[in-house]
Design a protein around this nucleic acid. Structure first.
Lengths: 197, 197
DNA sequence: CGGATACTAGATAGATCGATCTAGTGAGGG
DNA sequence: CCCTCACTAGATCGATCTATCTAGTATCCG
């Protein structure tokens, strides 16, 4: 039965991959941070670093998906406010962590894009799940076209997060949140303004 | 005087960092790709990998800046069309390279964010230069607020590029380009529609 | 020609990488 | 009790990493 070693390894890997990326993080560093013995790593992840990476990506992705559902699920928020809340969550995380906690997927996604198909695929799955969660929320509120707007929101969010983290300045996230939220509002039939055109 | 070894090293490093990232790329691999002798690397870049990385980032950033000026400078394009053209350039680059050629800065920026201050700073400078070039173009056409919209366009572009490259699918870039171009058009006094609100 | 400087060439160091392997521990079920 | 199996523990391997160091070659200037 369950020691939590495996979970601690995933957690430590998630944190380190998020901060430093996949290639720069050594397995020794992960076992060290997790307080896990070296031997356990290959016991739980016989596929080695690549398997640990893929599972970590899905693990982080799932955790954020629950966060999506939480923010989007608040009944009192209209979709534009929900989008704004989500950007704000990242602003808070960035500041609290002193610019360490960016997107837990993006770094690995870029590194793995040409390097490891299983890893890239895991990242793609996570992004798809996030997009679909956002699109469902938009569709249920009549924000259309829900799928396209979800892709757009996610793109703007990921990009602004990169810019803010690199510049050590939350301005990109704040500015982008404003404009994107307005776009969403303009596609929301319940809002005060109707969509243009 | 000029052998081109130093230039070839920068070029090879730029390509490899773009494809695989900074940490995953070995110096041996760079000298190999550049056809440059190992000894030359530390002759031209006595600061080692970090100096090479920082100079490579600025090198790639400058090259793209000229591309910005080229696209934004076309007189017949209004700003919304220029934005669309720029997204299209990346779509073409992604497809032609079979998803290898993403943003030459983003991967390194994410990797270096907590790892190397000089490298992060170089990336931040490049992003700033890109934003300013875009903002200048917007301001000269009366697209306001030019600075905010430039940050927004750059964010959406970077994010969509990540999503498209990870998914091996140009849809995020195409969808995001449409919506972002419309936003820019809506802030352009010369366009058929006036800005909302 | 002589001598300084720029660059090439690559051996080597020392550390760390991911991965494998063997040995040992400990709890639970028969 | 004992056997099994999940897990721990860490030595060890070969490869690769960045960086340094020493020589050798070329080029330009006097």
């Amino acid at each position: 039965m369950g020691s939590d070693t495996r979970a601690r390894l995933l957690e430590a890997a998630a944190q380190l991959f998020r901060e430093q990326g996949y290639a720069a993080t050594g397995l020794k560093q992960i076992t060290g941070a997790a307080g896990a013995p070296w031997g356990s790593l290959y016991h739980f992840f016989p596929g080695g670093k690549e398997q640990l990476g893929a599972e970590t990506v899905r693990h982080s992705g799932g955790r954020y998906l629950r966060l999506f559902d939480l923010v989007y699920g608040r009944a009192e928020n209209d979709p534009a406010d929900a989008v704004r809340d989500f950007f704000q969550l990242s602003i808070d995380a960035l500041e609290k962590s002193e610019w360490a906690d960016g997107c837990p997927i993006a770094t690995v996604a870029l590194e793995a894009s040409t390097t490891s198909e299983p890893l890239r695929h895991a990242c793609a799955e996570v992004f798809t799940a996030w997009r679909e969660a956002t699109a469902r929320r938009f569709a249920s509120e009549g924000v259309e076209p829900a799928g396209d707007l979800a892709v757009y929101v996610l793109s703007a969010f990921e990009g602004a997060l990169i810019l803010s983290r690199t510049a050590h300045d939350t301005t990109p996230l704040r500015v982008t949140a404003d404009i994107v939220a307005r776009t969403v509002r303009d596609h929301h039939p319940g809002a005060t303004n109707n969509p243009p055109t």
